[in-house]
């Protein structure tokens, strides 16, 4: 059915699209965020081995694959979201919550956002998210959504 849809949309068929759902069609090559292969996340292993949260977290690579599937099916914004998500897999939980808090209105100065963008780029290799934060900072500055310093 994916072929037919792609034709309707005038797109070319991409390798990943026909693979959806990945669980069924790419089961043997999927890895968790920890690197543990999905086929290795069995009930037996769960009962006998130490399983971390990362073992049942999605990996950056799988998120990129899902982004490709979304883009090919005509959902480019969802694809961009999943690409930013793939970058954010590298960000630790607490840091992720802090970053979200920083982006809420009135929380940071323009410079702090620039620093956040730099950190995303340098520390987490998150170029798309960094650009997104820079864009937010520009709009926040124009619309009075930066932190208001007390006079």
């Amino acid at each position: 059915m994916t072929d037919e849809r792609s034709e309707e949309r005038g797109n070319t068929v991409h390798s990943y699209n026909g693979d959806y759902p990945l669980y069924a069609n790419r089961n043997d090559t999927l890895n968790a965020a920890s690197g543990r292969p999905l086929r290795d996340l069995s009930l037996q292993k769960t009962l006998t081995e130490d399983i971390s949260s990362e073992d049942y977290s999605i990996s950056a690579e799988t998120l990129r694959a899902q982004a490709e599937i979304a883009r090919d099916a005509g959902y480019p914004q969802l694809a961009q979201n999943l690409e930013r998500a793939s970058e954010l897999t590298a960000v630790p939980n607490e840091t992720l919550l802090e970053m979200y808090e920083m982006l809420r209105p009135g929380r940071c100065s323009f410079e702090e956002y620039q620093a956040l963008a730099r950190r995303l780029r340098d520390e987490f290799n998150a170029a798309a998210t960094a650009a997104f934060v820079e864009e937010a900072a520009t709009v926040y500055r124009e619309r009075g959504l930066l932190r208001r310093e007390l006079e």
Binding site: N31, L38, Y56, I58, A70, Y75
Partner: peptide, 10 residues
């Protein structure tokens, strides 16, 4: 396991 595959993000 399904969370690892991410198919339900579509």
């Amino acid at each position: 396991r399904q969370r690892v595959a991410g198919d339900y993000l579509q």
